Each structure stands twice: as structure tokens, then as C-alpha cells.
Simulated assay, not measured.
Amino acid sequence: MKSDLPRRAAATRKTLDKYRAKPFDWRKRATCIHLARTHLRNMGHKPPAIPDFRSPVGARTALAGTGHADLAGLLDSLLPRIGAAEILVGDLVLIPGDDLFDCICVSAGGKLLGWHPDDPSGIKPLHVVGEILGAWRV
């Protein structure tokens, strides 16, 4: 696993480079599910296509269309779940979000990359103090 860390770090940097200056935007497909899919591809996975949606309501409908009630269920169907102590650079982590959705982030080794609600101008390192709802090995 240790020899895999440089590849995982490179893929995480590639994901960060794409979304660093990309504001969160439902209409422009800049959401945490798009971030996660891009990252999965950067890590060598072949995730399913994301249905087209351009609003929170459309996203909820698209998620229901996958047969999952929430993002954790969707991620469980794609990746093996791991414990918080097992998170490596490049793994996906779910943290509490807003009233509609939790937030998928990418692990950057001690920090999580995602959009912050106070500054959605692009993904940034988040200092998560609260609860981690789940983590998945990518």
C-alpha cells in the first residue's frame, strides 16, 4: 500500500487542480458528486455516468433514480467502506452538509478537499472537526 501513495497523491493533485478555482454550481455540474466522479476517474476507476441535473431537486431525483436514498448508499454500492482511521490520501469521505445533501470530500492527507459553504469559490482544504459520516477506499 505504501508504494501506492505517490500515485494516490498525484491523482488527488489532479482533482484539486481541476476544481480549485471552480465555484460550486448546480447548473455547471460543479458539485461534490461531480468532484467524486472526476476523482474516481483520476484514480483509475470507471464510475457510472452521472444523470444530468441542474438543481438540488434534480439531484435528489437523480439519486433516487439510482435506487439509493442517500450519498452514503450510493458510495457503498461503488466502493468498499473503511474506518476513519484507515483514510489515505485519495479516499472519499462523507461529512455532514446542508439540509438536502451531505458533502463528499477527497482526502488530502489529514485534510479534506471540498467546497466550504462560506466560500464556494472552489474546493479548498477543510478542517473537519465534527463527525465523519463515512469513508471509502478509492
Rank of each mutant, 00 (worst) to 15 (best):
M1V: 04
M1A: 13
M1N: 10
M1F: 07
K2S: 08
S3A: 13
S3P: 13
S3T: 13
D4H: 05
L5W: 08
P6Q: 09
P6A: 11
R8L: 13
A9S: 06
T12G: 05
K14N: 11
K14Q: 15
K14Y: 01
T15W: 03
L16W: 13
L16V: 13
D17H: 12
Y19S: 06
Y19T: 10
R20W: 00
R20P: 00
A21F: 02
A21N: 12
A21V: 02
A21T: 10
K22N: 08
P23W: 06
P23R: 10
D25F: 13
W26T: 07
R27I: 11
K28G: 14
K28A: 15
A30M: 11
T31Y: 14
T38D: 01
T38Q: 03
T38N: 03
H39R: 12
L40Q: 00
R41A: 15
N42D: 12
M43L: 15
M43K: 14
G44S: 13
G44W: 12
K46N: 06
A49H: 08
I50M: 09
I50Q: 04
I50R: 05
P51C: 04
D52C: 02
F53G: 03
F53A: 08
R54N: 02
P56T: 00
P56M: 00
G58D: 11
G58P: 08
A59D: 00
R60T: 09
R60G: 08
T61F: 00
T61G: 04
A62F: 00
L63R: 14
A64V: 10
T66I: 14
G67R: 13
H68Q: 15
A69S: 14
A69F: 09
D70M: 09
D70F: 09
D70E: 11
D70H: 11
A72P: 11
G73H: 11
G73S: 10
L74R: 13
L78N: 05
L78G: 08
L79K: 10
L79I: 07
P80Q: 10
R81S: 15
I82W: 14
G83F: 08
G83D: 15
A84G: 10
A85H: 14
A85Y: 09
I87Y: 01
V89Y: 05
G90W: 03
D91Y: 03
D91R: 07
L92I: 01
L92Q: 05
L94N: 09
I95T: 08
P96N: 02
P96C: 05
D99I: 15
L100W: 03
F101S: 06
D102H: 11
C103A: 12
C105L: 01
C105R: 04
S107L: 04
A108R: 06
G109T: 01
G109A: 03
G109N: 06
G110T: 09
K111L: 07
G114P: 05
G114A: 10
W115L: 04
W115K: 03
H116V: 03
H116P: 04
H116A: 06
P117I: 03
D119C: 06
D119G: 08
P120T: 10
S121L: 09
I123G: 02
L126I: 03
H127F: 07
V128T: 06
V128N: 02
V128W: 07
G130H: 05
G130Y: 08
G134I: 12
G134D: 01
A135H: 03
A135K: 05
